[in-house]
């Protein structure tokens, strides 16, 4: 009897793992079939107004890239503070708040940026979208930096200080170097996360059918356009949405996997 229960339980557990894998396979296969069906290289050459995706892909990269330029230094600096400078209460509070912010609903962050950037500047803009994404990214970068720096052995820091280096020299030349791989991985995962975000962009950057490098007006976004296209009644728009989803997912998974690959190789 005991052995029977054990068997049933173990089979159920294996079954759940199979269910999880089945969902992943189902989604990926759907994407491949629907996405590849409407995929052609012309998509990379034309803008959305001519039935392509060029402006959207470039736009999404610019938004996520700009968000990284803002978010990575701020997040790393904050992580360094928590781990290296902060003592006691304040550093702990910041760490906890950053954890909470990491799970804050992304649409709320969109609404916040709408109120503090979009309304005062008079309209949606690429800058507003990038700021919203940066706010999403900062806590993730803080978390990684904090965790990775905590793995660097104390002795390394002490050795640096014993050699007469100032604290910031020790941090930059020794501690960060030692934790470089881990931090890089974390940053890549954070980038993979924000480049697939839609909700914070809906009313900050919106999207545009045209190619644009002007960050002060509505900015082309792949994800927001997928949402628009998928809700349109015409078959052609939906096919384009599937092709765009396929490209987006492949991008996200490649960035994500390469992040994991870096760590694995270095270990």
């Amino acid at each position: 009897m005991r052995l029977l229960i054990n068997k049933i339980f173990l089979s159920l557990s294996v079954l759940s793992a199979l269910i999880g894998l089945a969902f992943l396979a189902w989604i990926l296969i759907t994407l491949f079939i629907k996405g590849l069906g409407s995929f052609h290289f012309g998509l990379f050459l034309n803008d959305l107004i001519d039935g392509g995706l060029r402006n959207l892909i470039i736009g999404q990269f610019i938004l996520a890239g700009l968000a990284s330029i803002i978010g990575i230094p701020l997040g790393m600096a904050a992580g360094i503070y928590i781990q290296e400078y902060g003592q006691g209460r304040y550093a702990n509070i910041i760490r906890d708040l950053s954890d909470i912010m990491m799970s804050a609903p992304s649409i709320v962050i969109g609404a916040f940026v709408y109120a503090v950037v979009v309304v005062p500047t008079g309209g949606t803009s690429g800058f507003a979208g990038a700021i919203a994404l940066a706010i999403m990214m900062i806590p993730v970068v803080i978390n990684t930096t904090d965790n990775m720096l905590s793995l660097v052995p104390r002795e390394l820091r002490e050795a640096g200080i014993a050699l007469g280096a100032s604290k910031y020299k020790v941090i930059i030349d020794i501690v960060i170097k030692a934790a470089k791989v881990g931090i890089m991985t974390g940053i890549l995962l954070a980038f993979a996360r924000i480049i697939g975000e839609t909700a914070p962009l809906l009313f900050t950057s919106e999207t545009s059918n045209y190619f644009s490098l002007n960050l002060t007006e509505s900015f082309p976004s792949l994800t927001v356009s997928i949402y628009d296209l998928a809700n349109e009644p015409e078959e052609a728009s939906r096919d384009l949405a599937w092709a765009a989803s396929f490209i987006l997912t492949v991008l996200v998974l490649i960035i994500n996997l390469s992040g994991r690959f870096i760590t694995r190789n270095k270990k």
Partner: peptide, 20 residues
Amino acid sequence: VVGIAIELLAAIPSIIFGMW
């Protein structure tokens, strides 16, 4: 392997879940 697959499921953008 299964662990990575499950984490990849978590990495798929939410809009894809919506369309699928």
